[in-house]
């Protein structure tokens, strides 16, 4: 678990890895002894593999609310109806 987070952090800070080709990234992950889950995520772009490895519950609103849902305020309430007798 720790190793995967450490690898993700180091890749995120490495200009040559962050935007490496899929083939180069695959080779780099192999040389870094990355987990199968991390390599599958890198290959497919599907974060669920890494989430599963780290014990996350995929698709759970509770634990993995999608971006923007968690922070967006509600739209303001509708304006009051005009008093027809006014």
């Amino acid at each position: 678990m720790t190793n995967t987070i450490e690898l993700l952090e180091s890749i995120g800070q490495d200009a040559s890895l962050r935007h490496a080709s899929a083939q180069d990234l695959e080779q780099a992950l192999e040389s870094m002894h990355a987990s199968d889950a991390l390599r599958r995520t890198a290959r497919t772009g599907d974060v669920r593999h890494v989430k599963m490895e780290l014990g996350g519950k995929d698709g759970s609103v509770n634990h993995n609310p999608p971006p923007f849902n968690t922070q967006t305020p509600p739209p303001p309430p509708p304006p009051p109806h005009k008093n027809e007798q006014a």
Partner: peptide, 10 residues
């Protein structure tokens, strides 16, 4: 309040 559990572990 983060995008997913992986980022939270970080």
């Amino acid at each position: 309040a983060l995008s997913d559990g992986v980022v939270e572990i970080w």
